[in-house]
């Protein structure tokens, strides 16, 4: 464990908790893409199946459990509890256009052709594009609430910190995982446009509005 990965994980946890709290306290999921949250729940489910087969550390196991619980709680709030506030007119990104190619790629490019490893690879590839429905929704509505912007900033920042973590691990212990690195770079690049707008607008208290 290094500081980059730790801060990255905490940033990820903060994003997940922030979103869950925002939906719960405002009792509304307006502006939130349910599809992205479904994809994240799928990412955590397929990635953390090793919860039952390998124990890394208390931190690792507890974070996995928290991520999975929060992901399903968020999906539940969006599609069940506050579904009346779900903005399905703007959450129209075709998620199957992400899941199918990613599923195929996971079969073609992976470290080991075993069920757990293919599912892990699937989750790594899927996570890199899972935010697209949310970014697409914001570009359609033309704006995002500031809390949603903070959520996206923390979520995008976590994988950017992981890239630094991978650089650090490569130079300090010769460890690298090319699949995670490439997917992590793709994921972070997808946020660049948003990062620019966030830094130039939201920081100064303006509303974030993506070019429609």
């Amino acid at each position: 464990m290094n500081v980059f990965r730790l801060v990255g994980d905490l940033s990820h946890l903060l994003a997940i908790i922030m979103l869950l709290k925002k939906i719960w306290s405002s009792r509304s999921c307006a502006g939130i893409s349910g599809k992205s949250q479904l994809l994240f729940a799928l990412v955590f489910t397929t990635r953390y199946l090793d919860l039952f087969t390998s124990f890394i550390s208390v931190y690792n196991t507890s974070m996995k459990v928290i991520y999975i619980l929060c992901a399903y709680a968020t999906v539940y709030l969006i599609y069940v509890k506050f579904k009346a506030t779900y903005d399905h007119n703007h959450d129209t990104f075709r998620a199957e256009f992400l899941v199918v190619p990613v599923g195929g790629l996971a079969f073609l490019v992976n470290h080991d052709f075993t069920p757990l490893e293919i599912l892990w690879t699937f989750s790594i590839y899927l996570e890199s594009v899972a935010i697209m429905p949310q970014l697409f929704m914001i570009s359609k509505t033309g704006e995002a609430e500031s809390i949603t912007s903070h959520y996206l900033f923390c979520l995008g920042g976590y994988r950017a910190l992981y890239i630094i973590n991978w650089l650090y691990r490569f130079y300090s212990e010769g460890f690298f995982d090319l699949i995670a690195i490439v997917a992590g770079c793709v994921q972070t690049i997808l946020y660049c446009d948003f990062f620019y707008l966030y830094i130039t607008k939201v920081i100064y208290g303006q509303k974030l509005s993506l070019p429609a």
Binding site: N60, W120, F176
Partner: peptide, 10 residues
């Protein structure tokens, strides 16, 4: 290549 069989990252 330094790849581990168990993934120790979240």
């Amino acid at each position: 290549t330094g790849e581990t069989d168990t993934h120790d990252e979240l």
